[in-house]
């Protein structure tokens, strides 16, 4: 069996692959942390408009060190800049954009994704201080709710599963998963494999996936540049 740690995509490469599916003119929310990386790989010639829950549309990259304005931050509380045409709005309007179906794409991280489209990404469920932020809002309303994630956990357990074991963020909300090994759609309560790394066999991929990978037409090679 292939050692997947030798062939798997880096986080940057997963983010790059997800960025290829963002259409020109799309309104996009990127979850805090790893998903923020997707903005770096916006396809040349396309312009997406990024939304941040705390109340900005069309923010840009971080300012130079020393140039931060701490009233101008993103949901991860990092300093950002504004693009021409940016807008500010209050929190109720911001989440109206989310739940009201006005965003085209939301890209989020995951602890587990189930074949039903259920997502667990806010709590590992064991004591400590619980914190949810906007996670449970972001899974509702966007035209596409995509997840980017390693295919397996740090200990090698599948993150694509039949049913989530961790506390849910939302039910039946995820439509596509970009992993370090494959691109998988969620359709009709099942995983449908769309792309996989050429270096991994179907059998080996299935072995590190916690639910059946269905086929619906040909599976394309997942090819990503060195980044």
């Amino acid at each position: 069996m292939t050692d997947i740690s030798d062939i798997k995509l880096s986080n940057a490469q997963i983010a790059w692959r997800a960025a290829q599916d963002i259409e020109d003119g799309a309104y996009v929310n990127l979850g805090i942390g790893f998903p923020e990386m997707v903005a770096r790989y916006q396809v040349e010639g396309r312009q997406a408009i990024y939304h941040t829950e705390n109340g900005i549309l069309d923010f840009g990259p971080a300012p130079a060190p020393g140039e931060e304005d701490w009233d101008l931050i993103n949901a991860g509380k990092k300093a950002v800049t504004l693009n021409p045409g940016a807008a500010f709005f209050h929190h109720a309007d911001s989440f109206a954009m989310v739940r009201g179906g006005h965003l085209d794409v939301a890209i989020l991280g995951a602890f587990e994704v189930a074949e039903t489209g259920d997502l667990a990404n806010w709590s590992v469920g064991k004591g400590g201080v619980p914190a949810v932020g906007g996670a449970m809002d972001l899974v509702h309303g966007a035209g596409r709710v995509a997840v980017i994630t390693d295919h397996v956990t740090k200990t090698g357990a599948p993150k694509l599963v039949e049913r989530c074991s961790l506390p849910l963020t939302g039910v039946g909300c995820v439509t596509r998963v970009y992993t370090s090994l494959a691109v998988v759609d969620i359709e009709g309560g099942r995983f449908v494999l769309r792309e996989k790394l050429p270096a991994i066999s179907m059998g080996d991929l299935q072995a590190v996936t916690g639910a059946t990978l269905n086929l619906d037409g040909p599976v394309a090679d997942l090819t990503v540049p060195e980044l």
Binding site: H91, S94, M136, D137, H140, G141
Partner: peptide
């Protein structure tokens, strides 16, 4: 602990005289 958008909408509803509402969140 309240989801962020629900927190915002609950406060808006409080100010707008709407005692309850339904949300998918």
């Amino acid at each position: 602990l309240v989801p962020q958008g629900t927190l915002a909408e609950r406060i808006r509803a409080g100010g707008a005289g709407i005692p309850a509402f339904y949300t998918p969140t």
